[in-house]
Design a protein around this nucleic acid. Structure first.
Lengths: 205, 205
DNA sequence: ATTAAATCCAACTAAATAGTTGAAATTAAT
DNA sequence: ATTAATTTCAACTATTTAGTTGGATTTAAT
């Protein structure tokens, strides 16, 4: 029995993941995925029966990857300022490796809110309670303004994700070339830490 | 000669705008647009020759609407804190009336960066120089931290847009029902003004 | 060597969707 | 009333894309 099985199946999956992330479900073409995987279109149906089935597997994996990266750091017990710095570093590294994932997740989430809701519920994915507790504790101790943890959470995620989601806009309006955008992101790390900590009047120690 | 022309043509256009914003180009169906406009599919081709031509008109109008809303407020001569408040109010009102527009623009911008680049260049759309000047001036006068105006700009736009772009995520993770999301947005206005002004250590007057 | 799964390929079918047509009906200006 | 543009409708064609098939070839385990 021939046994490249894992290889090819995985190769198809990774190709599909790239194409679906780039184009979304409706914009993706099975032929394009086959080309990207450098195999014949028949193989797509040999391993995955339909576009829909292939997509769902990609969808599930990307969803399963995306949120834990974010939530895991947030649930640690480090002081808020350290945690924030680690969050930015970790998230940036992840987004650099997966530059299309945020756009993909947002687009598909908006196309099929129920699918998203069910998936999240089934997998038990949710922002860590510890984050909310920590914010409340820091507020009680007078280390930061009494902000709504949810507003803060959305703001942090927003400022981190936005340049990746709207990269084209950033490049066009600031007339960036290929090198300048990564540079901008690098500078952004330091900016964001200060911006967020100041934003809530966080006082060290 | 019959003369519902403007009416029907506009009706089609508005329907197309809604559907394209909801689904994107690839996900939109001509039949769906016809149904939304409550007219026959033949009419679509009677007034607009093809899906592509119809889409381009929608694309151009939405792009022409979206950025000026943002840039116009930013180019005013008011003090930064007042300007910020007005920006948030104006932008929120616009996004409430056009809840899909941000997602649409980001998606299509990423699908066709060159089309976006050309359009922006042709129309001469760009962030107002006055904003950068103002930030520099406020920094010189010691009214705020010496931040990169571009980082600040992206952050402001990011925190404003993100809840609209990722509404589903917000609703699912915070277990919001229909009423709670608008409430969250209303609270967010006040939060954002403080968060951003603190973020750059802005000192009034 | 034999075997069975894996792979390739080209040509196919099936389904979905864009776009067309022509005839009939409606509308509003003249 | 006449006219020309508008609108409807259903049925049509054209094109794109998903999905299938069968036969030939390769591969790797036995």
């Amino acid at each position: 029995m021939a046994e490249n099985k894992q290889d090819t199946e995985e190769q198809i999956f990774e190709a599909a993941s790239r194409i679906f992330q780039r184009k979304g479900y409706a914009g993706a073409r099975m032929q394009e995925i086959a080309d990207e995987a450098d195999i014949n279109k028949s193989m797509l149906h040999y391993y995955y029966r339909s576009k829909d089935k292939l997509f769902r597997k990609v969808y599930q994996r990307e969803m399963s990857r995306f949120f834990p990266v974010l939530f895991k750091v947030l649930s640690s017990q480090d002081p808020f300022d350290e945690k924030l710095e680690r969050l930015i570093d970790t998230y940036y590294a992840f987004l650099n490796d997966n530059p299309r994932i945020a756009q993909f997740i947002i687009y598909e989430m908006n196309q099929h809110p129920d699918r998203f809701r069910n998936f999240i519920k089934e997998k038990g994915i949710h922002p860590p309670d510890d984050f909310v507790k920590q914010i409340k504790k820091e507020v009680d101790r007078g280390r930061m303004d009494a902000v709504d943890p949810r507003q803060l959470f959305i703001s942090i995620v927003g400022v981190i994700l936005f340049p990746f989601i709207a990269r084209t806009m950033v490049e066009v309006f600031f007339e960036f070339d290929e090198e300048q955008f990564p540079e901008f992101l690098k500078e952004r790390k330091a900016f964001l830490v200060d911006f967020i900590l100041n934003g809530i009047n966080y006082r060290k120690q």
